[in-house]
């Protein structure tokens, strides 16, 4: 199989704060404004796409993040094989896109996922994000799409002081540099 090469390939600690790129896991973008879409996804993945804004739903295998009233991001919580990824994508495509229930797009390499952990992560983010994290940080599963150092990011609260950050691959090295630079001065 071909070698894969991600952008950051690193993990750093600054005191209690740790930053690390999470090995590429499956990410699929879903769009739909169809009524049956939700139940279809429920059947396929045993998980219902959230309707409430800025939230997510998760089971053991997958998380689905709300991105907009007709858009969601699925990611696998664990690394799965390339073949499994393909199977899942094809299955979704067959049942959703082909059945006129919406769109299914593989975005695994579109996004780089960085995990931020530690009680100062919100101090770090506040250095360049205008987002008010007050509610976000209190509620596990919260999702926020906002700006960090003028770059689009998706943030997913997975636990207390523990979140996954999604940034577009082409911006990821740049943002990683900024995050590390800022982490020095917390």
């Amino acid at each position: 199989m071909l070698n894969f090469e991600t952008t950051v390939q690193d993990s750093k600690s600054y005191g209690d704060l740790t930053l690390s790129e999470v090995e590429p896991i499956l990410k699929i973008n879903l769009r739909s404004n169809k009524r049956e879409f939700s139940t279809k996804i429920g059947k396929l993945l045993s998980i219902i796409p959230p309707i409430e804004a800025n939230t997510s739903s998760s089971n053991e295998d997958y998380s689905i993040l709300w991105l907009s009233p007709d858009e969601w991001l699925i990611y696998s919580n664990n690394k799965i094989s390339y073949e499994q990824q393909n199977l899942l994508e094809e299955n979704l495509f067959k049942n959703i896109s082909n059945m006129n229930q919406g769109s299914v797009t593989n975005v695994t390499d579109h996004w780089v996922m960085i995990n931020l952990k530690g009680f100062k992560i919100y101090d770090l983010l506040s250095k360049s994000s205008p987002y008010d994290f007050k509610n976000f940080k209190m509620k596990k599963g919260s999702v926020a799409q906002t700006l960090l150092n003028h770059t689009d990011v998706i943030l997913h609260n997975i636990d207390d002081n523990n979140l996954n950050l999604f940034v577009r691959r082409s911006f990821s090295e740049d943002l990683w540099l900024w995050i590390n630079d800022s982490a020095r001065f917390l």
């Binding site: 973008n29 769009r31 739909s32 769109s103 797009t105 390499d109 579109h110 996004w111 577009r168 082409s170």
Partner: peptide, 12 residues
């Protein structure tokens, strides 16, 4: 129109 757009600039 029943159309959905998704950017994949960085994916490919």
């Amino acid at each position: 129109l029943d159309v959905y757009l998704t950017t994949v600039t960085d994916h490919f």
